[in-house]
Nucleic acid binder design. Structure first.
Lengths: 178, 178
DNA sequence: TCTGCCATGTAAGTTGTTACATGATTAT
DNA sequence: ATAATCATGTAACAACTTACATGGCAGA
């Protein structure tokens, strides 16, 4: 259900995007908040089209497969606006590392510590990339209209990664002393 | 796949639990890190039993439906230990509020602000409950063996909710000034 | 008597993952 | 040559949700 709205949200921000473009966005920075494989995206685009929420422009390219770019229809924009206004509960999430932690005493302490260190490194990596984007966004222009909202999602990404690193540090500190 | 391990992790901590007990745990505090409906749990327990990872003790109760309690088998414990030691990537997650934020400029500003305030209230609520459990855990006993690891998952829950509240505050501050 | 909790499941439908399938263009 | 990127899909399978189904016991 929500994948549909995620696609509509992307198309609202930047129209005339192909399934391939969307798949890249879902795999990139935005992918920290919503993921979808290209297979899912192509299916969903076909479905959205049937419902009249997006329209497609087929661009033939000589020799190659034709490229299809999608844009919001007025109906699609309306449905999206309606969804944004509708209250929802905070999204549940699943974290396998926490399940592992819950039964961490069963495993080798060194292995658990190593796994937490690995995760910490990964989050540090993501954090530095997000901070870069944060700098870019603040330097280039004054935040207007739509940019402001995308800036706020970026802020959340940064906070989340900072939180992860802080937790990993706490775990490492506690597990290292016997 | 991971639901299986989540169930094994619960049974490792406290054996002889019924599907109903597990469903309650998944719906309760632990549910912030992993969710499963009772339907899913009953199915998965049957599957785990076929594989010989859990064993069941059927307790007849006069008049009522019999109660089935499940415990880990040695094979189940081994599989769980092996899974915990196997490195994984940080779990992806999906956050519908972030998708809404991304296209927030399309909606009524008042509605967006109200939604963020609602979410903030929810997270404050969860946070206070988690902090209570934190106090209980620290006061009652010195943390030993398995408790330590469950304490660390609780710490993560608290940090996450704090992060949520801080982000909501930032959003509210930024959206209130024109 | 009615609500809520205890207790267990089946079945249909939706969503998401993995595997399979193809083929041109561009950079190393 | 070989790999990576562009570009689009189908099909089988696994995971998850929603609806349906049943029935006792305890307390208001």
């Amino acid at each position: 259900m929500s994948l549909a709205y995620a696609i509509l949200a992307f198309l609202a921000q930047e129209p005339a995007r192909s399934g391939y473009d969307l798949a890249k966005q879902f795999a990139g920075s935005v992918g920290r908040f919503w993921q979808a494989s290209h297979q899912q995206i192509y299916m969903e685009l076909a479905h959205l089209r049937e419902q009249g929420l997006v329209e497609v422009q087929v661009q033939p390219r000589d020799g190659q497969l034709e490229k299809k770019t999608y844009s919001l229809t007025p109906l699609g924009a309306e449905k999206l606006r309606e969804w944004i206004g509708r209250p929802i509960e905070p999204s549940p999430f699943k974290d396998a590392l926490m399940v592992k932690m819950y039964a961490g005493h069963l495993a080798d302490p060194g292995e658990v510590l190593a796994e937490v260190r690995r995760h910490r490194a990964r989050h540090i990596e993501w954090l530095s990339r997000l901070r870069e984007r944060n700098r870019d966004m603040l330097c280039n222009t004054k935040l207007e209209q739509g940019q402001m909202f995308r800036y706020l999602t970026l802020r959340r990404g940064i906070r989340l990664e900072e939180e992860w690193v802080a937790w990993c540090d706490e775990v490492i500190a506690l597990l290292q002393q016997p």
